[in-house]
Design a protein around this nucleic acid. Structure first.
Lengths: 188, 188
DNA sequence: TGTACATCAGTGAACGCGCGTTCACTGATGTAC
DNA sequence: TGTACATCAGTGAACGCGCGTTCACTGATGTAC
């Protein structure tokens, strides 16, 4: 039966949020349209009133996941200042909690692999998110524009790599990875 | 019809090699048993004379992919010495060629994401490979044992993250990632 | 404000497809004599 | 070395399953009067 415009918008939001979480937990191939709809409290048939294809949902969900991280960073920036916010970000990133909860974590660490094998449009969404994140991280650093950006990119690559490898490894190797990439030592 | 023991061993080798390549190109979910067998010049039905399950093949193929990298590194070590070998490794890793050819590249950069969602036994194979690689890379460095290992782990994380992000991004962002992670600058 | 009707969000069965795995079968290989 | 037979690597049809997508249907919502 038809629902009100407001209810439909809420459904839409729930679909995107469910997708953003399930995608990061299970990956693109293991996230089914039916699974997302079920998580959103709906049945699979109604999906196509909201999106034309699964791919369209993926783009929206990945965009949303990046936006969530940016909002988190912005809030920290305002609360503790840029330097402290970046330290917080790093410490939270390289943590057992982050490794164990991909659904709430960084979309780059959860999805880079899958998106590397996906459509060009999804890569554009992903690349734009990464670029915005790196720009934000570079803000909290010292030095010339280009050097800051490159440094932020190197750091971000390390964070993403460390968490991905930790997730893909036995607990002992995961620990090695995390403890090696904590903040104390900054040189590569 | 039955084939000779020798032919069977050759089939086995071809199956594992095909799997190791296709896995890195397409990921675990998009690599089918039939696809691997076809690539090996066989039909899918015969697969189960070689492996009990697809998972068993995955473990063998991932192991093989790591062994290939180790053999490459060992050869370079002998030819050019440890320092030069590590420089070569880094330069080859952060290259457009590596980004464009996942099938011949680092298994960590190609599969970390997928393996993070797989069985504990596959994670053990992966983690062991990563550990051996890091140990090899630490060999070419200076300083105390623990510091060398941590530094090698940080570098490896950066390399893996950079290539994964480059593969998942639009060309412009991919370039930013690669150029930022080249050898010239070593600090994070 | 009230009524009559068109719209359309959501449902659940159905579609064609590719997957991992099983199985009866084939015929060259390996072995026992 | 030659023969007779058991073995088993490889084939291709078939299985049950979950997938993305389609569709006829339902009935509350939104709108035109």
């Amino acid at each position: 039966m038809r629902v009100s415009r407001e209810e439909m918008e809420q459904s839409h939001t729930r679909i995107v949020e469910s997708a953003a979480r399930l995608l990061r937990e299970r990956g693109i191939e293991n996230t089914s349209v039916a699974g997302v709809m079920n998580e959103a409290g709906l049945t699979h048939g109604g999906f196509y009133r909201h999106f034309n294809t699964k791919d369209e949902l993926l783009e929206t969900a990945v965009e949303q996941a990046f936006a969530d991280v940016e909002r988190w960073l912005d809030a920290r920036f305002e609360k503790s200042g840029r330097g402290a916010a970046i330290l917080d970000y790093h410490a939270n990133y390289i943590s057992k909690r982050h490794v164990d909860q991909p659904g709430k974590g960084c979309p780059a660490a959860a999805l880079a692999c899958d998106i590397g094998r996906s459509s060009a449009s999804l890569k554009t969404v992903f690349g734009a998110g990464v670029k915005r994140l790196i720009a934000k991280l570079a803000c909290g650093m010292r030095g010339a524009e280009e050097r800051r950006k490159a440094k932020a990119a190197r750091r971000f690559a390390m964070l993403v790599g460390a968490v991905m490898i930790a997730r893909a490894s036995d607990p002992e190797t995961a620990d090695l990875m995390l403890s090696s990439c904590k903040m104390e030592e900054n040189d590569l």
